[in-house]
């Protein structure tokens, strides 16, 4: 053998243990106070939404005729409404529904966005032009208009149809970003290298493209949960989303609006939880963005729920 001078000895600073990346991300995450605070709040809200029904003996639909429009008290923690229904039970139930809707919408729309965006960006040509036109077309109308037109038709199908509808109009902007990220990834040398090795295109997408946009997708999906909850409440507020007998934060706000000045507990508990939840989600999203993608901390705009709404 020849005396080959190796560079085998990594200097200490450069050699974190295997899996260093994960640890790096974790340490950054814990360093970001926003993620900690936001995460704790979200966790507590989930506990409240799903554990809440078990700690009160009131049912969200059953009225208590002995207490109509009562302010918060020991028996009715958040008070009661005009029918004598327990506001705590209702809020918890509404929160539950809103959270589920938010999660599902974010999940569906992220999946669609990443598939459409990655395919359009990777294959280019007619596939790209077709998909881009579709995206532009869907962006021409505020999705709110379309959803309001369609949603009366879906009365019978319940809230799942509503989820599909929300997701169907919530993926376009993300898809655009994924598309342009894919286009630049496609020119990167490691993708070129894979192409020259004869790796199948779909495999390249799954193995090289998607993992490299994953940090954006995770962040975006997080923020999309908040956006979906806001859309849900807005549409339900105007009667185009969740309908009775189901309750969501939106329907609760709608029911409580007129009485808010006089009977604030009918309105402000739901409103407060809504803002708290979305705020917590946005804090997590912001922290994730920094932790997962430190190089582009400033480069990427703060994409918060508002832009997907």
């Amino acid at each position: 053998m020849t005396t080959l001078i190796t560079e085998a000895t990594l200097p200490a600073a450069e050699a974190p243990a295997p899996g260093g990346r994960l640890r790096l991300v974790l340490s950054r995450l814990t360093a970001a106070k926003g993620v900690l605070v936001g995460g704790t709040i979200v966790l507590l809200l989930f506990l409240l939404a799903f554990g809440g029904p078990f700690i009160t003996h009131w049912d969200y639909a059953t009225p208590d005729y002995s207490a109509l429009r009562q302010p918060p008290s020991g028996t009715h923690w958040f008070g009661t409404n005009g029918l004598g229904q327990d506001v705590f039970a209702q809020t918890v139930r509404g929160l539950q529904k809103s959270l589920i809707i938010g999660l599902l919408v974010a999940l569906f729309s992220t999946v669609v966005a990443s598939l459409v965006g990655a395919c359009a960006g990777y294959f280019g040509g007619w596939i790209d032009r077709g998909l881009t036109f579709l995206v532009d077309l869907l962006l021409v109308f505020p999705s709110f208009l379309i959803i309001t037109i369609i949603s009366p038709k879906l009365k019978g199908a319940g809230w799942i149809a509503f989820v599909v509808l929300l997701a169907a109009f919530n993926w376009m902007i993300t898809a655009r970003v994924i598309r342009s990220m894919t286009r630049s990834l496609r020119e990167r040398e490691f993708v070129r290298a894979a192409q020259f090795m004869g790796v199948h295109p779909l495999r390249i997408i799954v193995r090289h493209i998607l993992p490299n946009v994953a940090s954006f997708l995770i962040t975006d999906a997080t923020v999309a949960v908040g956006g979906a909850v806001m859309s849900e409440t807005a549409l339900s507020y105007f009667g185009f989303g969740v309908r009775a007998p189901d309750v969501s934060l939106g329907t609760l706000l709608a029911a409580g609006t007129d009485q808010a000045p006089v009977f604030p507990w009918l309105f402000y508990f739901a409103a407060g939880l809504l803002v708290l939840f979305v705020l917590a989600i946005n804090l997590i999203g912001d922290g994730l963005r920094d932790a997962l993608d430190p190089t582009t901390e400033a480069a990427r705009p703060a994409r918060t729920s508002r832009s997907s709404k």
Binding site: R188, E189, F190, A193, A194, R207, H208, N212, A214
Partner: peptide, 14 residues
């Protein structure tokens, strides 16, 4: 092939 940019030619996620 071996590429120029040692940062860009290896998939950072693998």
């Amino acid at each position: 092939i071996v590429f120029q940019d040692p940062m860009a030619s290896l998939d950072p996620r693998l």
